[in-house]
Design a protein around this nucleic acid. Sequence first.
RNA 1: GCCCGGAUGGUGGAAUGGUAGACACGAAGGACUUAAAAUCCUUUGGCCUCACGGCUGUGCGGGUUCAAGUCCCGCUUCGGGUACCA
Length: 930
Amino acid sequence: MEYNFSEIEAKWQEYWEQNQTYKTEIDVKKPKYYVLDMFPYPSGAGLHVGHPLGYIASDIYSRYKRLQGFNVLHPMGYDAYGLPAEQYAIQTGQHPAVTTAANITRYREQLDKIGFCYDWGREIRTSEPDYYHWTQWAFIQMFNHYFDTKLQKAMPVELLVQHLENNGTNGINAHGTEELDFSAAEWKLKTEKEQQDILLNYRIAYLADLKVNWCPALGTVLANDEVSEGLSIRGGHPVEQKMMRQWSLRVSAYAQRLLDGLSKIDWTDSLKETQKNWIGRSEGAEMTFRLKGKDVSFDIFTTRADTIYGVTFMVLAPESELVDVCTIPKQATEVQHYLEATKKRTERERIADRRITGVFTGSYAINPVSGTEIPVWISDYVLAGYGTGAIMAVPGHDSRDYAFARHFNLPIIPLIEGCDITEESFDAKEGIMMNSGFLNGLTVKEAIEKTKEYVEETGIGKIKVNYRLRDAIFSRQRYWGEPFPVYYKDDMPYMLDESKLPLVLPEVDKFLPTEKGEPPLGRAKNWQTEDGFPLELCTMPGFAGSSAYYLRYMDPKNDKALVSKEANAYWRNVDLYIGGTEHATGHLIYSRFWNKFLFDLGLVCEDEPFKKLINQGMIQGRSNFVYRIKETAPLNSPKGGKSTPVFVSYNLKDQYETTPIHVDVNIVYNDQLDIERFKNWNPEYKNAEFILEEGKYICGWAIEKMSKSMFNVVNPDDIVEKYGADTLRLYEMFLGPLEQSKPWDTNGIDGVHRFLKRLWALFYKDGELLLNNEQPDADELKILHKTIKKVTFDIENFSFNTSVSAFMICLNELSALKCNKRAILEPLVILLAPFAPHIAEELYHILGNTGTVFDADFPVCNEAFLVESTVKYPISFNGKVRFTLELPADMDKAEIEKTTLENENTQKQLNGASIKKVIVVPGKIVNIVI
RNA sequence: GCCCGGAUGGUGGAAUGGUAGACACGAAGGACUUAAAAUCCUUUGGCCUCACGGCUGUGCGGGUUCAAGUCCCGCUUCGGGUACCA
């Protein structure tokens, strides 16, 4: 019997489905373990060989945990809303629901071939009404809550209304967009519309006029994490700043908790660091500056209050409300010109061209500490969105201020003894203060503390913590997303009653904005409530559906709640989450925020959604090249030339002038081109000629991104077809450490395929079953248990590449011993089952078992079999190993030293030299220093 | 600029401070075969040597240590993240 992988794999995949092997239910008798993959957006291109990397790793871990007796939740679903399907719909008129469904079918086929242990009974799709019901529901809760800064948690808005009725804004602890100030009496005098407008300032989901990232090409607003360097992440279209009334989520209120939570979770340091930077906590002081000659004062934020004596000018952001106040009539025209010029520059232009620009307002502020008068300027290097939109400029010790001062010839004062500021500012927080009044002689660190105290005591300011984290803009002017459960009355937003959920996405005739420029939902017929109030026209962004999907998997069919109390109490949170780093500042922040919000409401029992997180590395492509000799370019080329292209093999190409051309990696084997297939690959090369080396055409190669245009995309289906799913799974793991980025190179897959064939050969040879029931000897037991120990350790550490090599070593050793013993092979098969489930099932049955191998117990290492009676000591001289010496394992240090020194090889090496020192590490090494 | 990772044979990669290159690919040689595939065996970091063996070697330069790919300091370089964040 041969190793017929296609037959075996089809057979077991069918068995698993028929027997519901991976169906998961709550079982309080067993400990739970929740393994989650980041669910995919089902794109039209299907899966390439890089996509399943993380899925294979999580699948191995899930199966391993199950074999160890855990009740493992391992679900999968689809992030089904998204821009590409809608862009495609705009171009073709094809409804995004149709293309999305087709893509999902394709994904499912591809995933099924790899043999994953997902419980497909729990599948979710974010675009299904019974799923987005709960996305809409969560939004309503966010609208109905505010963030209490003292309790550091979400509280019902009714409590806030009570407070406003009794005390106005006095003593209020609500995180707000703006600081408001009114009395209880004033509150009561306001109209309902005015009151609603004020409440929007505090709600966690709120509507506000914001400066947003507007992408004209996509016709929508984008969140900060969807924009990079002024271009949209999806599609790379230019993004501009625009004021718009938009829904937002008050993520910034949770900044401190999002930061604190990082210390409780097992994520990589680099990912935590990325989130820390994104949250961007900075401690400093907010100080008040008075304007000279006017009864106006304004606040600035600084982390370097200690440099207050070095302030030589102030700078306002162009968008700041203070611009009007500060600008004197004489400067008005100039300021106006500057503001207009700034407005015209897009974010992208500002990044590309960092000119120093600015304009003087004509006003002077007064330094609250030194009393000095300092000019107030306007410049776009100060951002309206951070701090107070105004800064005190200390050119001596801030490089941006320095550049500005140099450009406009403003004074620069050094504040640190001995610092050189002739060429650049001295930004480091070190040294002894000077020119700084009461701070002179202190170190910078002392000065920072002293200034803080001073600021608090004198009341010229207060200690303040600022965060870089912005609220998440939640409106998208697109069709293919969750509708908001929102209607408008008198221009104010109101939530639909929860009984009206889900609010189903309506049909539209086209997926484009209306003539009036409204979002596509403006085309929907009867898009209004029963009472005739208009419904919201925007839809929710991509991250809406992915923020709480891990909760829904716990209880996917529940139509009363997102997740039942008992399902949540059992499954709690994700024990292991595997996915890419690209979600570090998007999904992984939003999910944590969303979960914390639900936690505050008492709806989920864990404060953090993902306990342990592993980022699998990117699989890069490995492209192949052929080299066309230049003068053999096609006839229609400007240079003319021969009509038949001539290609020269890699190692001979330097003898010619050549053009490298990407060639499909699927017609290249071990860098050798299949010439016949190449000729058929592109009609242009039908009659091509080849200059070969040693009868072969060898291709060049390069590591590039895996993409269609580079012809380096490898489809997992092709690999499964040719080698089987088990080989694919083993090979993906064998490529290298899970977290490292590495190129896919199909060369080398033969190694793991041979491994499986040789494993098979321990059971069958020439159609004869070799399996026997003989007692294993000590050597065989040692090989087995050594492997159990190594593989268990490696799985626990997610070092799957080394576990595959441990299996290979084990097999090499067993093959050498011609071991066909059941007592050895049966545990080995179970050990291998998480990695290569199909062949393991088959062999498990050949061993005479029934049912599934995944109901077996994972083998446990018995250390007794690993005990060695002797140790081979490397004997080194001055650190260089010269020979080895086999000594009894229980020999003590003194004895080892004595035996070593008496050894004739030692005497030979010493050659009469005197010994300075002998280091003996029992069980390890002997080093003789001469 | 700042933060985080890397850098080891022709290639992917192993290596709790203790014999660097496990395991695999590729390559070379051999066996089997009419031939090919498949399979099996041998060799495979570099240099010197018929050989025994020796020298050298983990991006570069220092250091700590009996002993450094591994720890420390200073660079080079590649990848990722992030940015007029005051």
